[in-house]
Nucleic acid binder design. Structure first.
Lengths: 159, 159
DNA sequence: CATAAACCTTGTAGCGACTAGAGGTTCAAG
DNA sequence: CTTGAACCTCTAGTCGCTACAAGGTTTATG
């Protein structure tokens, strides 16, 4: 395009799949995977069949990556995206989905906050001592970190 | 044992794999898996070949589950356990791990808090009969919340 | 025009971290 | 002693990517 932008080209998505993936911090294969399972919409194509994406897709993919990074399952991410895609969705459905995820988020926040406090304390205490003086091992063996049964759901996370 | 404890039996591990797993909040298969990959030591066996565990194993498994639940990878857990197994090791390594994880935890807390607020807002609006907008995607696609490349490692989490 | 990088589809398989099933044995309570 | 639950090993499946193979085509730059 070399700076020569014509109005007719302003609406044309400009990003290839590689650039989209790079911006959202994942691989092109992942993008194709998400398209296949329906989290991302089919992208417009060039005449040559190459996908092209705009800023909305960047935002959507970034959302997906972040949500996954928190442990939301793909299915939970799907539900959240459904809500975002249908602002006119009946309130009771939004309510049910939002409340369900809110519970999980609250739980995860509590656990992360507890971990943060302990990590801060540990970092503060480790002033050239030995492992036996560190409490990270004791802390992570401490049942006080357990907040309800959901705290023992393994590494399954949210969803 | 029915409350009839003799001194000779006090040192005998009494917990089967199912009870150990229940206490640490995971499946028996997971325990066997951890033994196989070396996170848990081989347990003493009954004549019939059944594993028996004591309180130290409960603590160790609880540690493992907590660390996993917070996103430490199995390999990171292994490193932490190595350190715990060698108390004379200098704790600056534990310190380094803790500091690294503290960064990650802070980042996650910020993002999860934003998502919680958005979900709360939506639940609140539902009570009012109508969801005017849904900023879920915006909240989790905010690049200000990204801290370094590691924040985009997919669902790998800590470690 | 040449060329390297990026892209395409389809299919398969690997990785990490569990988790479940098959086909058996052991344990503990009644 | 009987019996059901818990246990054993081994294999393979699940989820969510991720990489590779095969066999190409397209794009953009020099």
């Amino acid at each position: 395009m070399s700076g020569d932008t014509t109005p007719a080209l302003i609406d044309c998505p400009a990003l290839g799949i590689g650039e989209l993936a790079r911006r959202a911090g994942c691989k092109p294969e992942t993008v194709r995977y998400y398209e296949r399972i329906g989290l991302l919409r089919d992208a417009p194509r060039t005449e040559g069949g190459q996908r092209r994406y705009g800023e909305a897709a960047v935002r959507r993919l970034t959302f997906i990556r972040h949500a996954r990074d928190f442990g939301f399952s793909v299915e939970a991410v799907r539900e959240l995206l459904e809500m975002a895609d249908h602002p006119q969705m009946p309130c009771h459905e939004v309510d049910a989905i939002a409340k369900h995820h809110l519970e999980e988020v609250e739980s995860r926040l509590q656990r992360l906050s507890a971990l943060r406090e302990e990590l801060r304390r540990m970092v503060g205490q480790c002033a050239g001592g030995r492992v036996e003086s560190c409490r990270i091992i004791e802390v992570l063996s401490d049942h006080q970190l357990c907040i309800g049964e959901s705290a023992h759901g393994g590494a399954q996370g949210l969803g």
